[in-house]
Amino acid sequence: MARISVEVDGIAYEDEVEPRLLLVHYLRDRLGKTGTPIGCDTTNCGACTVLLDGRSVKSCSVLAVQVDGCDITTIEGVSSDGVWHPVQKAFHEEHALQCGYCTPGMVLASIDLLKDDPDPSEEAVRQGLEGNLCRCTGYCNIVRAVRRAAQEMRVTTP
């Protein structure tokens, strides 16, 4: 067992974990952070994407012990004071989700993408989300949503 301390969505946790425990299972089974789902075994689907010290990672391919001392943001920590993040809002407005299983990962990958490129072209959004699979939407509305969120974020954060 290894001792880790980690901050998840603004709350500090200290836990004993087996070295092999995957971050996503730590979040889901130990912390009850079930907002982050698991869709594959091979880092392909991106459903489990979270932010690790501010950058997107696939929490199914990170060990909990590796994030000792780190800061994690999941979909549950993206809103602030009950106000949705512009990306969450845009996904809703543009109907960028159907079953919603990929949505947490898509939202966090999009937030990461917009950090680097505040005004992404359609092509840039498509390339930037290549690590997140959606089986419902055909991606059109996801692309629209990310660009809509970008616009809103540019307006609100000069």
Binding site: T34, I75, L97, G100
Partner: peptide, 19 residues
């Protein structure tokens, strides 16, 4: 109409069976 379902899905307050 924007979907009623979205609120829980975009915030992670979902009820997947594995949860």
């Amino acid at each position: 109409r924007r979907r009623k379902e979205d609120a829980r899905l975009v915030t992670g307050r979902t009820q997947w069976t594995d949860n």
